[in-house]
Nucleic acid binder design. Structure first.
Length: 416
RNA sequence: GCUGAGGUGCCGGAGUGGACAAUCGGACUUGUCUGUAAAACAAGCGCUCGAAAGGGCUACCUAGGUUCGAAUCCUAGCCUCAGCA
């Protein structure tokens, strides 16, 4: 199979935006690309065929979640994620590092039996220098994740792109805390790399799992909102032998200005021939910020999660002034009463399945009565919307009109 | 017609002499969501004054009554449901 390779196709002259292609053993990823999120082995509500039709080249699965359920015995038996999910295109796996952050402050544990909640007194996560002790959100059992262990799990799942186990620094933090977290991430990066190489060398798992394809590893940059730390982290991670670079610890509560600032510090220090991923960012306006700073891929739950909450993406100029439902520029809240008799499609310019066949009134109705179909229709729309935007962005980079597209999108005044 | 049960906020349904503007659901309204414990979560939900703490008013079918005090007890009326005719 083809090895992992990043091909830089075109560098925008007016910005740092770049057009590229990531070659993986399971096919190419056209960049800049939105990476859908399929935490538990599915992009919620959609089939692999639907994802392909929507132009999804790659999506991200979470190691922590897959480790707890279905567990690695199943993974070994079925031969890895590609076979398990029926998806023969590229896959990314997240290391579980984010759960250090996201589970840390949660108080309640969903019980096995359904909708009851069990209150637990102990935190779900405990960080040590060696790794992270998780308590399963399913049954409270303890599990220790180390960089090495995360690498082994990811190797078993056989994704095309792995992420090094990192410590996603919370926000706000003090400088010393952020420094400590960053240093831990660097140490773990080294251990991740070492473990990953070892696994590649011995091919213990690849022989019985998903073939002998090359599995790439991205290192993760931390450093919170501190210039010194971010730059240091960028240099350290870039200096290691990773296949790609991920920027983590952003959009954790710091505000968009700070996030953009971080990217401005970091991206100029990154090697040009290496793909760059931003972990967990992807609101419409963010996308332009990322792309213009030379980010190649980014994953975000926002489009899929919002879809299930009734927030549908829409071109700025199509938002009614009367839609007071949200301050967000590119969303409408289809559950609002004002859409109950609206016979127009969600977005007049959208060519997705949902918009071609159904009115806002129908989608509104399905949300009100909680029909399962609506989660699919909404997710289809949002992913289509964002992937169409990514296509537009890629072609604008190709013909040198990226900045015009940005302006058109971000600064077009809403129709009154 | 007889017998029995009952009428509580938009709906369902607790409460059965003071701690009741009334438990709890649902609906509804608003808000939140960026490497997904998320088809989730949070707040509000009689009217009104207040930034808030808190206050005022009107309320548990209707009309009387008992009581310091009634959604809760008594009387009458109206209505609903179940069984029997």
């Amino acid at each position: 199979m083809a090895p992992f390779r990043f091909e830089l196709l075109h560098q925008d002259k007016k910005s740092r935006a770049r057009l590229g292609r990531i070659h993986t053993p399971h096919g190419d990823i056209q960049t800049p690309a939105f990476v859908a999120v399929g935490t538990q082995g599915s992009v919620k509500s959609l089939t692999p065929d639907e994802l392909k039709d929507l132009g999804v080249d790659v999506f991200m699965v979470n190691t922590y979640h897959m480790y707890l359920r279905p567990g690695m015995d199943v993974m070994k038996k079925v031969g890895g994620l590609h076979a398990f999910m029926g998806w023969n295109k590229p896959i990314m796996t997240d290391s579980g590092g984010f759960q250090v952050f996201s589970l840390a402050r949660k108080k309640y544990l969903a019980s096995d039996t359904g909708n009851q909640s069990i209150k637990i007194d102990h935190p779900l996560v405990k960080i040590t220098e060696d790794g992270v002790e998780f308590r399963s959100h399913w049954d409270g059992s303890k599990h220790l994740f180390t960089p090495k262990f995360s690498m082994e799990l990811q190797w078993l799942m056989g994704a095309d792109i792995h992420i090094a186990f990192d410590d996603c620094t919370p926000y706000p933090v003090t400088f010393p805390q952020a420094k400590k977290s960053m240093e831990r991430t660097h140490r773990w990066a080294k251990e991740s790399l070492k473990a990953h190489r070892h696994l590649r060398g011995v091919k213990v798992f690849t022989s019985e799992v998903s073939g002998n394809h090359y599995q790439a590893l991205y290192g993760s940059i931390q450093g919170s909102i501190f210039e010194k730390l971010r730059k240091q982290s960028a240099k350290v991670i870039s200096g290691m032998d990773f296949d790609g670079i991920a920027i983590g610890g952003v959009s954790v509560g710091e505000g968009k200005k700070e996030m953009v600032q971080v990217l401005d510090w970091v991206t100029p220090l990154l090697p040009k021939d290496t793909p760059r991923h931003v972990l967990g960012v992807g609101e419409i306006d963010d996308i332009f910020e990322l792309v213009s700073r030379g980010i190649d891929t980014f994953d975000c739950v926002q489009p899929t999660r919002l879809a299930r909450m009734g927030r549908l993406l829409v071109g700025n100029k199509q938002i009614y002034k009367s839609d007071k439902s949200t301050n967000r520029k590119f969303e409408i809240d289809i559950t609002k009463k004002e859409y109950s008799k609206d016979t127009k499609p969600i977005d007049a310019a959208c060519m997705c399945y949902t918009c071609k066949h159904f009115s806002r009134a129908y989608v509104h109705h399905l949300f009100r009565v909680r029909e399962l179909l609506v989660y699919r229709l909404a997710t289809i729309h949002n992913i289509h919307f964002i992937n169409t935007l990514m296509e537009d962005i890629r072609s604008s980079i190709a013909d040198g009109t990226f900045l015009e597209l940005t302006r058109q999108y971000l600064y077009h005044k809403p129709r009154g």
